[in-house]
Amino acid sequence: MSMLGLEFMRNAFMAGGCIALAAGLVGYFVVLRNQVFTADALGHVAFTGGLGGVLAGLNLLAGVFGSCIAVALAIGALGGRGRGRDIAIGTVFAWVLGVGALFLSLYTTARSAASGTLGVSVLFGSILGLQPAQVVVGSLTGIATAVVLLLIARPLLFLSVDPEVAVARGVPSRALSALFFVLVAVTVAESVQAVGALLIFGLMVTPAAVAQNLSTRPWVGMALSAGIAVAVVWLGLVVAFYIALPASFLITGLAFVLYLASHLARRMSRIGRLA
């Protein structure tokens, strides 16, 4: 049977591709703005929020989206950059993860032991087991995130590389930073069911890092980052279809190999230029 004849494979390509598109674009700015740590920490919030949502009798996704967006706005309100903020974020997120552990324990004692896999699936996702509704939510939010990001891309680029001049030229710094955090949060949240709260990090950071190694032109870099993210997801799915290895392992593995190769390429080109 052909690969695309299977509904779960079509779902995986569709939702995975849209989420990767958003992750690649958002990730370009996460890397440019040195906010890799913040993005990673939002994955912890997604974990706790998802479990909290289920415990409260709501939908898991409602918990994930609600908690991620609320925390993103709080970080945005905190403002600033640098060490002090990193410490504050680290402290709060460690606590949030602790709350997540509590939720997981409450959840597993309240229900049968078989439901204990919920925690694992929030962290690592299950791209080959998506329900039709999940595919629709993942794809639409992925595309919406990408569109909003492209609409704010130019002032966000200005604000990211040259904040003081950007402010003097009229870029609304606070509002734009907060909106960007929300986009990061939505990207993490939408990915929870497909690639998981931990692995989305690989799709957000690694393709962007590869793109910035390969090009110093911002618009080319953004396109490369999105393209690489989509390509590793699709390629990972194809390989996973033929050999029995977890798709998430293959996707992050491919991204990592590309990262090493791009580093090598950058180093070689520098040596070439000096010679």
């Binding site: 891309a153 130019r154 002032p155 950007a166 030229r169 870029v171």
Partner: peptide, 16 residues
């Protein structure tokens, strides 16, 4: 050169 370009239209919305 991209920094110079941002001085021209970096505050506008949308892509360049």
């Amino acid at each position: 050169v991209d920094l110079v370009r941002l001085g021209l239209d970096g505050e506008r919305w949308g892509m360049s």
